[in-house]
Design a protein around this nucleic acid. Sequence first.
DNA 1: CAGAATATTCAACAGTTGTTGAATAATCAA
DNA 2: TTGATTATTCAACAACTGTTGAATATTCTG
Lengths: 215, 215
Amino acid sequence: MSNTSVPKRERILDAAEALFAEHGYDGVTLRQISTQAGVDVALASYHFGKKLDLFQAVFDRRAASLNDSRREALHACQDKAGKRGPTVEQIIEAFLRPLELAQETGDEGWRHYLALIAYINNSPYWGPRMMSQLFDELVQEFIEALKKALPGAREEDIYWCYHNLSGALTLTLANTGRIDKLSRGKCHSADFQAAYDHMIPFTAAGFRKLCTRRR
Amino acid sequence: MSNTSVPKRERILDAAEALFAEHGYDGVTLRQISTQAGVDVALASYHFGKKLDLFQAVFDRRAASLNDSRREALHACQDKAGKRGPTVEQIIEAFLRPLELAQETGDEGWRHYLALIAYINNSPYWGPRMMSQLFDELVQEFIEALKKALPGAREEDIYWCYHNLSGALTLTLANTGRIDKLSRGKCHSADFQAAYDHMIPFTAAGFRKLCTRRR
DNA sequence: CAGAATATTCAACAGTTGTTGAATAATCAA
DNA sequence: TTGATTATTCAACAACTGTTGAATATTCTG
């Protein structure tokens, strides 16, 4: 259970990841991080420079891997669907399932990382500064696929639907446990499979409703 | 444009509201708040006590008014619908439109306040501590109405659908402006009417899809 | 008006913050 | 084993933090 044998540089990233996800950038001090990592304060500066650079390093560590698995999921469902192209459900499934799998890993680091993404995505300060550079390109790929699955849809409608999807996902990643209280135990925010099993048909129905031309 | 003639106690609340919404609780110092309010640092402590009490005061100031207008909207649509009860769309409309109206007020304070609600709702730390006490009762009223509009639905499904609705709403309130970039100008996050005009049918379709028994 | 109550500022505090440079330990290359 | 490179700790700093008590101004009350 202890983190001995893990290199100290990584232990700092792990601790920063967990603490930033819970309390945000300003809610965490370098001393809290280094204490949780079992390391001297100065070591964080030695490895990563300024506090902001450490924040960015936490963000970067898993970004490429996450983007890869989501892009692979998209391409896989596209290949399987042939030239007719995948359905809305299949595209959203490819967009979301890799996140569920990451959350369900024994490695709790992924849970913290995705909660950190949720924190950034929902923040008026950090959102514009950090989300675009690393995720926009992939999101555009998914949106292109959605356009093909919804012929005749107005672009504006597609983007607003994506906005709603992104919001539902963000709250799921944040994992605040609020639904547990609200539902008085009938739902558990730790039950990721249930969350995604509901999120996928929910958002797909929304896309169809708004992006299918009525004639 | 200046805030002269507004009592200093309120100016502190206004400044705190705006800054907490943008940077979170720990990202704001009492000196930033008092500077923006044009007031000495000690005045915040005089009026509100500890920093945390000021945070709570900002939260409380508009909570009752907001709850009232949403509850009124629910009861109004229930009265109009008669004993058959309102539809899912009508209930969601009542749940959301008062927020749109608040955001569209000339008073930018309401925009900041709702962005602060979004910040709290998405935070693993603050969410459980501050949301339930002030909003759960009202949310339960809406959920009861939804149960009646969706007879035969499993309670679990209703709560997961509400979770998705809450997420879409939260991101809308956060007002991060990210959709502007993503859509390359086709959507504007400041266009609240467009946001809600899309959110309502989107989420209503999701509820119907998951909470209508297929026979 | 006087005087009491309230509002506001001033000045200062003890504790905490991120960061740095020098000192020490561990690892690597030959 | 050497020497050099890298990793880690130690000690300290100046700046900033929330908070407080006393001093001053403003408003209310009679």
